[in-house]
C-alpha cells in the first residue's frame, strides 16, 4: 500500500464510498416506494426487510470508507450486526400479528397453505 503514492488509495476509497452511498440511498428509497405502493401488509414487510437492510449496510459501508478510523468501523459493524439480527425478528413479529388479527386478506394469497382447510398434514 505504501509503494503507490498516498493519494491513490484514498481516491479509490472515496470513489467506492460514493458508489455505495448512492446504491444505499437508492435501496432505501426503493424500500420506501415499496412500503407505499404494495397493497398488502406482508408485501410491505418485504420492502422493509430486504432493500432497507442492504441499503443501510451500504450507506454505513460508504461512511466507513470515508472516515477510515478503526473505532468508527467497530461501531458501524455493531450497527450492521444489530440490523441483520433484528430486521427478520421484527418482520416475523409484525407479519404474524397481522395474520392473527385478520389484517391480512387470506384470499389474496394464492396459494395460501396457511388456510386450515388446505393444510396437507
Amino acid at each position: 500500500m505504501t509503494e503507490v503514492e498516498p493519494g491513490f488509495w484514498t481516491t479509490v476509497a472515496d470513489v467506492v464510498a460514493g458508489v455505495s452511498l448512492l446504491a444505499g440511498a437508492f435501496l432505501t428509497l426503493a424500500a420506501a416506494v415499496g412500503a407505499l405502493r404494495f397493497d398488502s401488509l406482508l408485501a410491505r414487510m418485504h420492502a422493509i426487510t430486504k432493500p432497507q437492510v442492504l441499503g443501510l449496510v451500504l450507506l454505513l459501508l460508504g461512511l466507513a470508507l470515508r472516515v477510515r478510523s478503526w473505532s468508527a468501523v467497530a461501531m458501524l459493524v455493531l450497527v450492521v450486526v444489530f440490523q441483520l439480527a433484528t430486521a427478520p425478528v421484527s418482520a416475523h413479529l409484525v407479519s404474524r400479528a397481522g395474520f392473527r388479527t385478520g389484517k391480512v386478506d387470506p384470499d389474496a394469497l394464492v396459494p395460501n397453505e396457511m388456510d386450515p382447510e388446505a393444510r396437507r398434514d
Binding site: L27, A30, A31, F38, K50, P51, L109, V110, E113
Partner: peptide, 23 residues
C-alpha cells in the same frame, strides 16, 4: 440479489406480483 429484486418490484410500473403463503 434479493434486495435489488424487491427494489425493482417496488419501483417498476405495472401490476404487483402475486403473493402466496407456502409451508
Amino acid at each position: 440479489v434479493a434486495s435489488f429484486q424487491v427494489a425493482w418490484v417496488a419501483v417498476r410500473p405495472g401490476p404487483q406480483p402475486q403473493g402466496a403463503v407456502v409451508q
